[in-house]
């Protein structure tokens, strides 16, 4: 394996802010070897990494749809053009999974652009729909729908006021269904800590929703409980994933971990 290629890749990695002590040098050497056309490196890559690529494709789309993308990536790797984007900042296996995930998501998003978005109106509101009185804009709705609407609106505003770190934790765990360990790793905290933070955030959201229903819509404690019960039975179009994708409010440096009402 030519050392020049390896040194060049290291240099490019350093330019991209890579931590030299965290570089995956073995994988970088393998990638450089493959890019240089080293047969042994390529054989090793096929043996060790290609199954990873295909398993990742099957995990993303059990129907086999992502296999084409995996083949496409494999083709680009075979032509050596893709290896130059790998600088050893992660393991080769994770990078391959990330490349595949990126293409998969971009393809899904491109496909969805051609479909009408059912929740355009909701998204356009940016979660900041002006709250009306309890007997105002939602009064004409059936009871269950009215409760769902009230809670959705309050939740939207409460989520938008969460610090970005709490939003990220919610997004990773609830919306993207990562495990506690994975979520904690991304946030740099132990999974037990992550679990405690999630519990705290849930309490905060609940308290904030209750406060809004009470203060802004004039609901009594019993009505609020009824609303939660009705909403849990029929949450309507409540979509946490959608809520968490909305632009968060600007936060000051000192409110990175709590929102109003939290302890």
């Amino acid at each position: 394996m030519p050392l020049e290629r390896f040194a060049e890749a290291l240099e490019r990695g350093a330019e991209r802010g890579a931590n030299l002590d965290k570089l995956h040098l073995e994988d970088l050497a393998l990638a450089c070897g493959c890019a240089a056309g080293d047969e042994a490196a390529w054989e090793h890559f096929i043996r060790e990494q290609r199954p990873t690529l295909y398993r990742a494709a099957d995990a993303l789309d059990p129907g086999g749809g992502a296999r084409e993308m995996a083949d496409g990536i494999y083709g680009e790797l075979f032509e050596r053009s893709l290896f130059r984007y790998f600088h050893g900042r992660s393991s080769l296996a994770t990078w391959l999974r990330a490349v595949l995930a990126q293409r998969h998501i971009d393809r899904l998003r491109a496909g969805r652009r051609l479909e009408p978005l059912p929740d355009d109106e909701f998204s356009a509101s940016g979660g900041s729909a002006k709250a009306g009185p309890y007997d105002g804009q939602y009064a004409a709705l059936p009871e269950t729908n009215r409760c769902s609407e009230l809670i959705r609106e309050a939740l939207t505003r409460a989520v938008s006021e969460l610090p970005s770190r709490d939003r990220l934790r919610l997004a990773c765990y609830y919306a993207q269904e990562l495990t506690l360990a994975e979520t904690g790793k991304l946030l740099g905290e132990h999974e037990a800590t992550c679990s405690r933070h999630l519990a705290r955030t849930r309490k905060t959201l609940r308290a904030e929703i209750e406060r809004r229903l009470r203060d802004e819509h004039g609901l009594s404690a019993a009505e609020i409980d009824d609303c939660f019960a009705a909403s849990s039975q029929d949450p309507g179009e409540l979509d946490l994933r959608q809520l968490l994708r909305m632009e968060p409010r600007k936060e000051s440096p000192d409110d990175r971990s709590t929102v109003r009402g939290s302890t």
């Binding site: 971009d106 990773c172 909305m246």
Partner: peptide, 16 residues
């Protein structure tokens, strides 16, 4: 924390 595409990427990578 505020990017829909990147959140989806995180989820997709997690699923793999």
């Amino acid at each position: 924390a505020g990017c829909a595409r990147c959140q989806a990427l995180v989820g997709a990578l997690g699923r793999t």
